[in-house]
Each structure stands twice: as structure tokens, then as C-alpha cells.
Design a protein around this nucleic acid. Sequence first.
DNA 1: CATAAACCGAACAGCACTGTTCGATTTAAG
DNA 2: CTTAAATCGAACAGTGCTGTTCGGTTTATG
Lengths: 196, 196
Amino acid sequence: MPSAGTTRRRADAERNIAAILDAATDLLARAPDAGVGDIAKAAGVGRVTVYAHFPSREDLVRAVLTRAIEESMAAVTGAAGGEDGDPPDVAFARLIRESWPVLSRYGRLHEAAVRALPAEEVREHHDQPMEAVRALVERGRSTGAFRTDLTTDWLVTTVYALLHAAADDVAAGALDRDGAAGVLQTTLLSVLRPAP
Amino acid sequence: MPSAGTTRRRADAERNIAAILDAATDLLARAPDAGVGDIAKAAGVGRVTVYAHFPSREDLVRAVLTRAIEESMAAVTGAAGGEDGDPPDVAFARLIRESWPVLSRYGRLHEAAVRALPAEEVREHHDQPMEAVRALVERGRSTGAFRTDLTTDWLVTTVYALLHAAADDVAAGALDRDGAAGVLQTTLLSVLRPAP
DNA sequence: CATAAACCGAACAGCACTGTTCGATTTAAG
DNA sequence: CTTAAATCGAACAGTGCTGTTCGGTTTATG
């Protein structure tokens, strides 16, 4: 079978779906309560067209979140999955440096997802990339590179919180996107490394 | 003139105003999008009664925020305004320890305020207690007790972000309220102190 | 106990958003 | 060029909130 048995999808439809997804990602990252009308306008498309491709606002948000998580996973595992060749603090610094350009674009998207989707579903998605961070933190703890006087949970929470704070500051213009990666590296390694 | 020239306010009205304010604070800290009906129910009061005392939902949120900021200011300045007798890191540890019981109760109240009130108004209020933190951070930087390789703005942002993250975790049951103060002290001092 | 203040629920209008339907028009594709 | 897919705006019902009005009832206060 060529595709799915039924009639194929036209090229402009494909293009519009991509445009809607892109616009929704950008807009929701800045205005988590943006309506379908706003998203359609940002995508240069009629409101009805959005509903032609996504059954409901909830489905659209889900699609945006899924894609964002996939991209994040690729960035995070690509940098953190770099085997045990490097010591944990070096690996962590690389993780931040390489995943920041991706993560910094998602701003308040998480908030949009929490409002539109069941809490547990968001948690499941969001925990995926954080699992890679957790694994790296635990490896660091076992080798003595990272501190053990704080729980792993709290350290991961700290990483998560500061990443989001930096993304918010970038969105608000209070922080330079390119410089933020270095600031995050410095700050987070100060937290992760054992106290002297 | 005894009070204001017109007729005085009855005692049960006073009691209900307090109940509404308390319930709104508790509820909005957990559910920032709670409606006036929810707040009324939580306060054990009719919805109309809320509107009898607060012209609009916006005014109610404003009243809640104002009171919360006042209480925070009292807690923060009471601990940080403790003169220059103590070295900055000791003063900062005391600041966290003494203000945490207050701050931890406000959870996502800030989010509720951002949604209901003009952004600038929220910022003005919210910056008040943070100003005390900023002053302490700057004193630490000038004496060499705190690091200078990161900007003051970013250090303050970090304090803010981790306080909120801890408050969220407490609200979600992932963190013990009493133990959190110590965790925050340890974490934040690791960030503030100069790198070895 | 008399009065006025304060309360209540029900009901209403207004608004903004979601999701659907319609017919008319444009446009990709064979 | 022909056909079917895809688009568009306008208009509709449905929902959930805000803020208001109403008459009836409770309750503080003097």
C-alpha cells in the first residue's frame, strides 16, 4: 500500500499543518492562554482550518507538546548519552550547552500544557527528558563528582527550575540567550558539586 | 468624626471579609485560576457576598496580593534588616530560615496575580521584598562573601526561582515544608558563595 | 424589640471562547 | 482542464465565567 489506502493529503495541507504547529509553539511559549483564533492568525490561516487538522484545542496543544518533547529528548540524549567517557561535571556542562538552544525556545509552553491537558499526561511527557538529567546526576553522585547531602529529587528540581527561570528571563529580555548557557553551567555546577 | 462620617460596618461583615481574604489566599496559591464562586464556597459565603465587599475579581486578587506582600515584607525585612552585625552568608541563612514559613504558603499566588492584574503592577509589588534580597546580595559581593562572576540580577533571579520551586514542591507534597528551609539554605549558599 | 445592615440563592445579561455547519472560492494534482 | 481537496469567513449553539439585580431572610446593634 502506498500510504494508507484512502486518498492522499495535499501539499498545501501539509504546509499549513506545519505552519500551525510552528505558530502554536511560538505563541504558546509566550502566551500560554492563547486561543485557537490567535494561533490561527499567527499561522496566517483561518480558524476553521485549524479545526480541520486538529479536532480540538486540546489535541493541538498535545501535538505541540509531543513535538517539543521529542526535540528536547533528541537534544538532551544526544549530549548526555555521550557515554561515560567524560566525567559527570564535564558531561553536564556539555548537556546544558547543547540542549539550551532548544530548551530556551519553549518558555512557558509547559504552563500551556498544564492548563490544557490532564496533569498526569503532562508529567509523563515532561519527565522523559528529565530522566536523562536524573541519570547523569546519579552517576555523578556515585563517583563523588556531585554532592550527596541533598536528594537527587531536589537537585533535578533545581536544574529544572533554573532552566525555566533562565528561559523566562530570555523571553522577557532580561537575559541574553547566547550568554545564558554559560551562566547556567556556572550556576548549576556550583549546586551540583560537593561543598568544600 | 468617629470613623468616616457615614454608618459603621457590622462585625459579621468584618469577619466575612477576613474569611474571604484567607480563603482566597489559600485557594489561589493552589489553583491560580479559581473563580469567584470557588473562593466564595471555600470561604463559606455566598458568591454575592464576595461582590458586596470586593467590586470585582481583580480587586479581590489585588487585596490578596497586597496583604501577602505586606506579610512577606515584614518577614524579610525583619530577618534581613538585622543590620550589618552578621556576615552576609549568616544573614542570608537567617533570612531564608525566618521568611520561609511565610513564603512557602503563597505557592502559585504570584501566577494568579499575573493573570488577573496588569503585569507592571504585579512586578512593582513583587519587587518590594526582592529588593531586600538584592541589597543583601550586593553587600555580600562587596565584602567578598558572595561571588561576583555572576550578575546580581541573575543571583536574585536564582533565589526567587528556587524559593518558588520549593514552594511548588511543598504544595505538591514532594517536599517537606519544615525541611525545605534547610535545603534552600544549603542550595542557595552554594550558588552565592564564591567558587573555590 | 425594633431597625437597618448584611446575608442568601436564583435569575439575568454580557462576554469570550470552543467547536460546528454552511455555501462560496481557491488551489493542488492527475 | 477537470476534479476533488482544501481553504475561507460568517454565522450558529453551547459553555463557563463575570458582574448585577431582585425579593426574602437572617442577624448584629442599640
